[in-house]
Design a protein around this nucleic acid. Structure first.
Length: 423
RNA sequence: GGAGAGAUGGCUGAGUGGUCGAAAGCAACGGUUUGCUAAAUCGUCGUACGGGUCACACCGUACCGCGGGUUCGAAUCCCGCUCUCUCCGCCA
């Protein structure tokens, strides 16, 4: 959620942010509910103050005396009107809260205007994009695919979108995870192993609930949610905590399987490994002081880029335009890797600054040494990286004339060989 | 899964219906004292929301695991839930 002060004192800033994000949000209703709510609070609190001072008097009185009994009568009336207002306030609070949560974060001034993907700004491209290669084959059309990936049996065992990785495929997926975690460790990012299920409070704090409930798998018995990204448990790790200023910045990363129902997806997007219901990913999290968060965003993006560079995979970095970036982000870069076989870009990382939007919701603060006050930290996160699409790019870009796949140098120690050969 | 015990401020821990936001101690922070360290001593020492202020100050309200209830009044009584600990069972 955004700062209430901004809403109240400069609603135009919020209004412009909503416009830039092309999100439908009734700001007037939020402001109206806020005003009504505050009025009721003042009412009920002044009555409570009255009740409290009367209680102090009554504590001194002779119990059962006529004056005491008279006071009891008076207070009975007061008490019931307090209860009445309380009920109204509770109802209003709920409406107001829903409205408040529906206000998106305000995009940073450097975020380009735009509504569709075509208006994202290509920030940078890296690597040679091979054109017109003789063996441009999408990975899902490899004739020896079943040697490393088994979609059919995945469908039998679980359902569409839950492939088995087999043999060298399984090892390649595991190698990527290890490579990503090792790289993070070398960059001073502490590794965490996280729970793959979270409760409703956690899912709410990071913004999956209430609006994205349909995108998550939920357990029947305990009402837990399978995580769509390690961002959820990682961000919630420090939920409801007040940190020391000297603790910041905090860098963490975590591997997890990510579970997404992907309701509404179709077509070429879901072919092969392009979009699956369960995939491996390493996520990087940062908790930082507000004044550093945009520099931290740049270094986060550069870190994610460095992984693709070390793997030798051509990619582009996009600065997302207002209408395409997420609801909670103020600024977002996506990294897309080039998949030669499909002749298309595949998103493998998304690096975002949330400023205090998440920390406000999750109540993650730090004590500012100068003012002595508790301030909300800024949170950032970025994929570093998602496995399946990197896997795809390695297969398609590394495909050789003889049908084998040449592996990136940096993975050789993990794979124990430099290519995957069809049998 | 079964039986029992418990949950109070950063920590330890008092408090069983009425000036309790909550004793005391520890830790922390600031001052004084001291040749340094240590010790002593005085003071400060929660959070949120609302009002107020340019900003402080200040004022009000709420919060003693969470949610309900009883009562003029609840940390304290009643009900439900969650979590922690101990014992038993099961188990990678």
């Amino acid at each position: 959620m955004i700062d209430l002060k901004i809403l109240r004192e400069s609603p135009d800033v919020a209004r412009d942010g909503i416009r830039k994000k092309h999100i439908d949000c009734d700001l007037e209703a939020v402001l109206k509910a806020d005003e009504e709510r505050r009025k009721l609070i003042v009412d009920v609190e002044s009555l409570r103050a009255e009740q409290k001072s009367a209680n102090a008097e009554m504590a001194q009185m002779q119990k059962g005396s006529p004056e005491f009994l008279e006071k009891v009568g008076e207070m009975r009336t007061l008490s019931s009107s307090i209860k009445e207002i309380d009920v109204a306030l509770k109802a209003l609070d709920e409406t107001w809260n829903d409205l408040y949560l529906s206000v998106p974060n305000i995009p940073h001034e450097s975020v380009p205007e735009g509504k569709s993907e075509s208006e994202n700004v290509e920030y940078k491209t890296w690597g040679e994009i091979p054109q017109q290669e003789a063996y441009q084959i999408p990975h899902y059309d490899f004739d020896w695919l079943e040697q490393i990936l088994d979609f059919k049996r995945g469908t039998k065992v679980t359902g569409a979108g839950f492939p088995f990785f087999v043999g060298d495929g399984a090892r390649l997926a595991r190698s990527l995870v290890s490579f990503f975690l090792d790289q993070a460790g070398e960059s001073g990012i502490q590794e965490m192993a996280v729970p793959f299920f979270v409760n409703a409070e956690s899912a709410t704090a990071t913004g999956q609930l209430p609006d994205k409930e349909g995108q998550m798998y939920q357990t029947i018995q305990d009402g837990l949610y399978a995580i769509p990204t390690a961002e959820v448990p990682l961000t919630n790790f420090l939920r409801d905590e007040i940190l020391e200023e000297s603790d910041l910045p905090i860098y963490r990363c975590g591997y997890s399987a990510c579970f997404r129902r992907e309701a509404g997806s179709y077509g070429k997007d879901v072919r092969g490994l392009n979009r699956v219901h369960q995939f491996d990913k390493v996520e990087v999290l940062k908790w930082v002081k507000p004044e550093t968060s945009y520099a931290e965003l740049d270094s986060l993006r550069e870190y994610a880029e460095s992984l693709l560079q070390k793997l030798g995979l051509p990619y582009r970095a996009l600065l997302m335009c207002g209408g395409v970036m997420g609801f909670s982000q103020t600024k977002q870069y996506d990294l897309e890797v080039w998949a030669m076989g499909q002749q298309r870009w595949l998103e493998v990382s998304s690096c975002s600054n949330f400023e205090s939007f998440q920390s406000r919701r999750a109540k993650i603060r730090y004590k500012d040494l100068e003012t002595g006050k508790n301030e909300f930290v800024h949170t950032l996160n970025g994929s570093g990286l998602a496995v399946p699409r990197v896997f795809v790019a390695i297969l398609e870009n590394g495909l050789q004339a003889d049908g084998s796949v040449k592996l990136p140098e940096v993975l050789v120690p993990y794979m124990g060989k430099d290519r995957i050969e069809p049998k």
